[in-house]
């Protein structure tokens, strides 16, 4: 009996582990979209943040350096996106897709160019140590749930804290409201004296930086091994974009949303174990091909997307001016 409990704990533990990179990606995209830009380059931004953060972190043997470099790499990608869409008035969809193509290509190109010199994660002992789990006192002693939810590495706690702080920023502070004004109606915000371009630049860069950290975390989750065929991000940047709709542009709701998706992702890894541990209840899981579980997050996203539009969500917080470039002379 205790072993089946262990399986549940493990399942829930990994649910959190697999969710958090998505949380970073989703929160980053929400920050960008709140300022009125639709960034389809999440996948590429995460890939660039991941590879630069990982290489820097390993060579400096420090998690802090890794996260910092991933963030900076992300903000630089964000700056490119902002330069093209805010200053150059280029189409946001096309710019985002180009960033994705470019970012993923850069990831593979750099990884292949490194070849034998690719750093092994286990050799960066201090970085690995910094990723040790931290028990939250008292809470982590709760049976089953304690070890699953309150005993994680530092990036998990930072991620959740960031989501809550961002929620507070956008809902409760004056500065956050101004950003939302830019996303809803840039011309009106401009007439109130808000520097629309500056707000957009700042938030596109901030959001992209957060995505970069998410990419690094994704790579660390996968043990930092470079595969020539599979990118670390592997489509999760796109799920992050879809999750924004699911989270209704609220970073607090994004925590819930990412856990739902983390559940499906964990299922893809754990369904065999679950079927073995609970043969009576969950034995049928074994009859389903593994590819179905891999496709499940995407199927669920599609279903939610369709359901959301069919229900005609009246309480949608979608920024009204999203995807439309603001050209001052057109006022």
């Amino acid at each position: 009996m205790s072993s089946s409990m262990d399986v549940i704990t493990q399942f829930l533990f990994h649910l959190v582990v697999y969710s958090i990179p998505l949380l970073y990606g989703t929160c980053g995209e929400i920050v960008v979209e709140r300022s009125g830009s639709l960034d389809l380059g999440v996948e590429g931004t995460m890939a660039i943040g991941a590879i630069f953060g990982y290489l820097a972190g390993c060579s400096a043997n420090s998690l802090f350096v890794g996260v910092l470099v991933a963030y900076i790499a992300g903000t630089l990608v964000g700056e490119v996106f902002a330069l093209f869409t805010v200053t150059f008035q280029a189409n946001q969809n096309v710019t985002g897709l180009t960033i994705t193509t470019f970012g993923v290509a850069l990831y593979f190109f750099m990884g292949n160019a490194m070849g034998e010199k690719w750093p092994v994660l286990t050799k960066a002992d201090r970085m690995v140590k910094a990723l040790d789990t931290i028990d939250i006192p008292l809470l982590s002693d709760i049976p089953v749930v304690g070890k699953a939810f309150f005993s994680h590495n530092i990036l998990v706690y930072i991620g959740v804290l960031m989501a809550i702080l961002l929620w507070f920023y956008f809902e409760k502070t004056r500065a956050g409201m101004r950003v939302r004004a830019v996303g809803e109606n840039p011309a009106a915000a401009d007439s109130l004296g808000i520097n629309v371009a500056a707000k957009k630049y700042q938030h596109i860069m901030l959001g992209s930086g957060i995505m970069g950290i998410g990419g690094l975390y994704m790579g660390l989750n996968l043990g930092g091994t470079f595969e020539g065929s599979n990118c670390w991000i592997n489509g999760y940047g796109w799920i992050a974009i879809a999750l924004v709709i699911f989270a209704n542009w609220s970073t607090a709701r994004a925590i819930l949303g990412t856990f739902v998706f983390g559940f499906f992702r964990t299922l893809a890894v754990y369904y065999g174990t679950l079927a073995k541990t609970f043969p009576k209840v969950l034995g049928w899981l074994d009859n389903i091909p593994s590819q179905f579980f891999s496709a499940l997050p995407f199927i669920v996203t599609l279903v939610i997307l369709i359901m959301d539009s069919v229900r005609k969500n009246k309480h949608s917080n979608e920024p009204a001016a999203i995807g439309v470039n603001y050209y001052r002379e057109d006022r």
């Binding site: 180009t98 960033i99 193509t101 470019f102 993923v104 290509a105 850069l106 593979f108 190109f109 292949n112 160019a113 070849g115 020539g228």
Partner: peptide, 13 residues
């Protein structure tokens, strides 16, 4: 050392 992703990189640029 230059794999075919260099083409994607150039396309993006």
């Amino acid at each position: 050392s230059i794999d075919s992703h260099f083409a994607d990189l150039l396309q993006g640029l």
